[in-house]
Design a protein around this nucleic acid. Structure first.
Lengths: 252, 252
DNA sequence: CAGCATTAGTATATGCCTGATACTTTATCT
DNA sequence: AGATAAAGTATCAGGCATATACTAATGCTG
């Protein structure tokens, strides 16, 4: 018989329910501080830069002290993910479609500011307060529709997965580019070599694709970000179209 | 002036262009063997089980020998991903919709057999021969449509991303479940606690969701796999609906 | 007011890992 | 018969996560 309001430690830490028992030595450190320090390091050095020694040092403590506030490094990553995600913005939209569109763009904006978020290994269903809040926002947007729960969840996670994937892809490319000046050359070499490897006999469609304007387009005047925006919208609208079909179908 | 048929070493290895120069000591090891051994370990111990010492030992060599055949551990992961993906099956379908559906299920089947594939960190656009072959298959399926390249690529990566995401989510859950008998209890506790944390005032929709039948459904008679299949199809058909709208629009 | 239980943080150590460097071994080519 | 060059090995440095056993600081109890 577990007590009815028992909450596992990781969840307690996720939801900011630190208890600071009156007994014993008082803590000079807390979960919030640890997570904030870790997020700061991730912002500066990327996710691989986050190590327990470095987080501890940035706070003026030893590595082992962190284990008083966090169960493991994996748990720290989960805590970081929810903290860095932050609360969703207020989305007031005339209809579900515009609402989901704004939700997707807001989500994307957060990830673009912290690309390392797209690389945090997901360890289970959303369970942090911010994750739940974003979920709530999406569900609220769809509350006027007649979709059942399974469809709502499906639509939301489809959009969210799409956002993560597209931001990750773009940021990887950008990182590669920033990694030295000669990187641009290397990248061009890489593309050129790949185009040569894609034999038109074995891969007719792919070969046509690789030699299409899409990959030639040399010094396009439009900035990369604009292209990325267009690509992103393209896929997003496709998803929204699919959802629209479902909604129309559920109304009959 | 780089030679016009210069191919970067990682790409050469990906495409099986090992050169075995006639000079010097002949190699008793090659990229293929290394990758195969690594894949075998990943199949048994998961992606975290793959370390250079273990791969080398399973071949009867020392860790450092691997660096003669593979640039880095990250590169090894890339090679593993393409090797383990394997070639796509022949997909003969009457129309693009059935074709893409089969393509998605085939992709999913591969990932289900090797769940660690969904956790290999992606390091750039598809560039291995098998990845290209899968891409070719998808493009061929859509070749009858009037979609432009951007839409085709968008549709394909949307589906592929969805497949990866859904398999990863399911396999995580299954792993957690297999990780000891008490895990099921812990999981139930977790869900229960979470349901209590989701305050209906702050999160009205989410709270209703958490207390809906979707989460109660105790010992459902239908096996997990069947439920997963249904969920998967749900999202997939949604995507296909979206693509259908695009295709219809591009025909006008 | 003394000391005890309790909690926070530290010191130290183990066993891993990736990868650099310098070496030995084994083959071909001249 | 060497010279040459590549394959594989030995050793090592620098990091990392984390277990265990410690010291330090506080409130509670007598």
């Amino acid at each position: 018989m577990t007590s009815d309001d028992f909450v596992p430690a990781p969840l307690r830490r996720l939801w900011g329910m630190s208890e600071s028992s009156r007994l014993g030595r008082p803590a000079s450190l807390d979960v919030k501080a640890v997570v904030a320090a870790a997020v700061g390091i991730a912002d500066r050095d990327g996710l691989d830069g986050v190590t327990l020694p470095k987080v501890a040092k940035s706070l003026g403590f030893t590595s082992m002290s962190l284990y008083r506030h966090v169960g493991s490094k994996d748990e720290l990553l989960t805590l970081m993910a929810d903290a860095a995600l932050g609360p969703p913005p207020d989305i007031a939209a005339p209809d579900w479609r515009e609402g989901l569109r704004r939700w997707a763009f807001a989500h994307r904006a957060v990830l673009q500011r912290r690309p390392w978020l797209t690389r945090v290994p997901v360890a289970g269903p959303p369970s942090g307060p911010h994750q739940i809040a974003w979920m709530e926002a999406a569900l609220a947007i769809m509350s006027g529709t007649l979709l059942d729960w399974a469809h709502k969840i499906g639509a939301m996670s489809l959009i969210s997965g799409y956002v993560v994937q597209s931001v990750r892809q773009f940021s990887e490319l950008a990182e590669g580019r920033a990694e030295g000046q000669g990187q641009a050359d290397a990248e061009r070499d890489y593309g050129r070599a790949l185009a040569r490897l894609v034999n038109p006999d074995r891969f007719p469609e792919a070969a046509r694709l690789f030699s299409s304007t899409l990959f030639e387009a040399p010094p396009s005047t439009t900035p990369d970000a604009a292209i990325a925006d267009a690509d992103f919208s393209l896929g997003l609208e496709l998803i929204l179209d699919g959802i629209a079909v479902r909604i129309a179908r559920s109304n009959t």
